[in-house]
Simulated assay, not measured.
Amino acid sequence: MIVMQEFEVYPDPEGGYAVEPCGLAGATEGDTYEEAVEMAVDWLRVHALAALERGAEFEGGGLGHAPSHGGTVVTVATSVELSDIPAVTAAEAAEMLGVSTARVAQLCRDGSLSSWRVGNTRMVSRDSIEYRIAAKPGAGRPCKATAEA
Score class of each variant (00 low, 15 high):
7 F>G: 06
11 P>R: 09
49 L>R: 01
115 S>L: 08
61 G>A: 09
138 G>W: 14
132 R>T: 15
2 I>T: 12
27 A>F: 14
40 A>V: 02
47 H>I: 07
11 P>S: 06
140 G>Q: 07
74 V>D: 00
52 L>R: 09
141 R>Y: 09
5 Q>P: 11
25 A>I: 11
146 T>G: 08
80 V>W: 00
112 S>P: 02
49 L>I: 04
79 S>T: 06
145 A>D: 11
38 E>A: 10
118 V>G: 03
72 T>F: 12
124 V>N: 08
95 E>C: 00
3 V>N: 05
51 A>T: 08
50 A>G: 11
37 V>I: 10
82 L>S: 02
65 H>G: 09
43 W>C: 02
48 A>N: 03
46 V>R: 10
10 Y>F: 15
13 P>R: 03
122 R>F: 01
33 Y>E: 08
91 A>G: 01
119 G>T: 10
25 A>V: 12
147 A>H: 14
10 Y>A: 07
18 A>M: 13
130 E>F: 05
84 D>A: 06
118 V>P: 00
119 G>V: 10
116 W>L: 00
77 A>Q: 14
52 L>S: 07
94 A>C: 09
87 A>T: 13
53 E>W: 03
18 A>Y: 12
66 A>I: 09
82 L>K: 02
88 V>I: 11
67 P>Y: 10
62 G>C: 06
98 G>T: 03
105 A>Q: 12
57 E>G: 13
113 L>N: 03
6 E>Q: 11
119 G>A: 05
41 V>D: 02
2 I>L: 08
8 E>T: 03
143 C>T: 15
147 A>C: 13
12 D>P: 06
36 A>K: 07
5 Q>T: 08
34 E>Q: 10
52 L>N: 05
116 W>I: 00
77 A>D: 11
72 T>M: 09
44 L>N: 02
147 A>K: 15
65 H>T: 11
134 A>C: 08
81 E>T: 10
84 D>Q: 04
91 A>E: 05
21 P>H: 02
